[in-house]
Structures are given as structure tokens and as C-alpha cells.
């Protein structure tokens, strides 16, 4: 197919630029995957915490102690922060994509003019440029996917630790450690549990038990938003720049004519 031939040759011809885009795309994929995995871990631990809390408070004991409230609030605010960070990453990517689309269509001006003069519509040309970027993005996504798949255990461990640290920081700012100990004492009084005090707040498998299989989350949203930002950002920018270029082409032609006549 001619179109795909143009796309692949153009990528090969502009290796250096597209390598830069590949790195940026990989960075976005990594950030997005990490944030989604953190959210997932966060939600898991929150659910575990609620389950264990329920076990402790079967006999109608109050669950509204300050510490318990602080833990709940901590989970919620962390989740909110992950979501906000993710949207920020998406917004930055969209902006970069807009900028890159504009710059790229401008930088390949000679080539763009050729296509336009040969009768291709700005839409056709923009489509070619966007598909080039999409291919690069999918390449980066697959690469990141593969690497994270191979390293998922250590990555997941890293993310879990980060998640716990963030959580500790979150509610140690609202509750002092002595209140926490007191409250734990009250909750655990006369109870036989398979977990210790901190295990209530950060549930996880016991240290010596086999760890559950680890994987990263958020592949689908990462792929979709990545492609979406490229299509939206670069597509709009390239289309705008190319339409402008086409108008300029027609306009310069008419101004030379007016000089002549």
C-alpha cells in the first residue's frame, strides 16, 4: 500500500526525530502504567483494610475512631492525587503532541508543499504524519510493555513500597504515632488475628507466604489515551499548519501574478 510505504520510509528518513519521540512516548507509557498500578495497589489495600476492619469490629464496636478515619481519608486523597497526576501527564502529552505536530509540519515544509502541489488534501498529508507518530507510539508502548513484563516483579515491589510510603506519609501528617498505637491497641484488644497492627492499615500477604503474582495495570487506558492525544494533538496541529501552508501557496501565486500584470 502506497500510504504505508510513505509512512515507513518517512520514519526511516527522520530517524533521529522519531527516536526522540519514541523516548518521550516511552516515558509517558511508563508514567501512566506506574500511576495505574499504584492506583490498583491502593484500591486493593483499601479493600483489604476495610475487610480486616470489619473482622475486628463484628461485635458492633465503633469504627469511627480518628485513626480509622485518617486511614480512610489517606487512601481516598492518595487515589485522588494519582488520578490528578495521571491527568496532568495526559495534558502535558497533549500539549507536547500539539507542539510537535505544528513543528513537524513546519519543519517538513518542502515535503508538505510537494504533497499539496501534487493535489493531496491537507487531510491526507496530516493523516500520513499522524500515522507516522502513531506507529512510533505503538512501538514505544510495545517496548515498554515487554520490558515491564520482564521486570514486573521488581517493578511491582518498587511500586508497592512507594505506595505504602506515600500512605504512611499521608496519615502520619494527620495522626501522631502515639494516637495510632493507642487506637490499634483498642481495636486489637482480645482479638486473635493473622496480621499484626500495621497489617491492618497496609494489608498484604504475610511476609513468609508466597507472594501473589505481580503485574502492572492500565495497559489499555495507556494505549488509548496515548493514541488519542497523538491523533487529537498532532492531527489538529498538522491540519492547521497544512491548511495555512496551502492558503499561502495559493496566495503567493496570486501576488506574483498581480506584480506581473
Amino acid at each position: 500500500m502506497r500510504f504505508m510505504e510513505r509512512v515507513t520510509s518517512a520514519i526511516r528518513y527522520r530517524k533521529r526525530i522519531y527516536f526522540g519521540e519514541l523516548l518521550l512516548a516511552a516515558l509517558f507509557c511508563l508514567t501512566s502504567l506506574a500511576l495505574w498500578s499504584l492506583r490498583h495497589a491502593n484500591a486493593n489495600m483499601r479493600q483489604g483494610f476495610l475487610n480486616r476492619l470489619e473482622m475486628l469490629t463484628t461485635n458492633g464496636q465503633t469504627t469511627s475512631s480518628r485513626v480509622v478515619q485518617a486511614v480512610k481519608a489517606g487512601y481516598a486523597s492518595l487515589d485522588g492525587r494519582y488520578v490528578a497526576t495521571w491527568w496532568l501527564a495526559v495534558a502535558i502529552t497533549l500539549l507536547l503532541s500539539l507542539g510537535f505536530g505544528w513543528w513537524s509540519a513546519h519543519n517538513r515544509r518542502a515535503e508538505s508543499e510537494t504533497y499539496l502541489i501534487l493535489g493531496k488534501s491537507p487531510f491526507d498529508v496530516a493523516a500520513q504524519y499522524v500515522v507516522e507518530s502513531l506507529l512510533v507510539f505503538v512501538g514505544a508502548f510495545l517496548f515498554v510493555g515487554l520490558v515491564t513484563f520482564l521486570l514486573s516483579d521488581s517493578l511491582n515491589h518498587l511500586l508497592m513500597t512507594q505506595s505504602r510510603n506515600a500512605l504512611t506519609a499521608e496519615f502520619s501528617s494527620t495522626v501522631s504515632s502515639s494516637t495510632a498505637t493507642q487506637s490499634l491497641k483498642a481495636l486489637f484488644e482480645h482479638k486473635l488475628t493473622e496480621f499484626t497492627g500495621p497489617g491492618l492499615f497496609f494489608p498484604g500477604p504475610p511476609p513468609n507466604a508466597p507472594q501473589p503474582s505481580h503485574q502492572l495495570y492500565g495497559f489499555v487506558p495507556t494505549l488509548l489515551t496515548g493514541c488519542g492525544t497523538i491523533i487529537l494533538g498532532q492531527g489538529t496541529a498538522a491540519l492547521a499548519e497544512l491548511s495555512l501552508l496551502r492558503r499561502q501557496l495559493l496566495h503567493t501565486a496570486s501576488s506574483t501574478d498581480q506584480v506581473n500584470s
Partner: peptide, 14 residues
């Protein structure tokens, strides 16, 4: 108006 990264054939067939 020749696209440098395409082959001669692809340029002819643009």
C-alpha cells in the same frame, strides 16, 4: 517536488 525519502517508483506513484 521530489520526496527524498521515497524510492523513485514511490515518487512516480505518489
Amino acid at each position: 517536488g521530489i520526496v527524498p525519502y521515497l524510492s523513485v517508483r514511490a515518487n512516480l506513484l505518489i
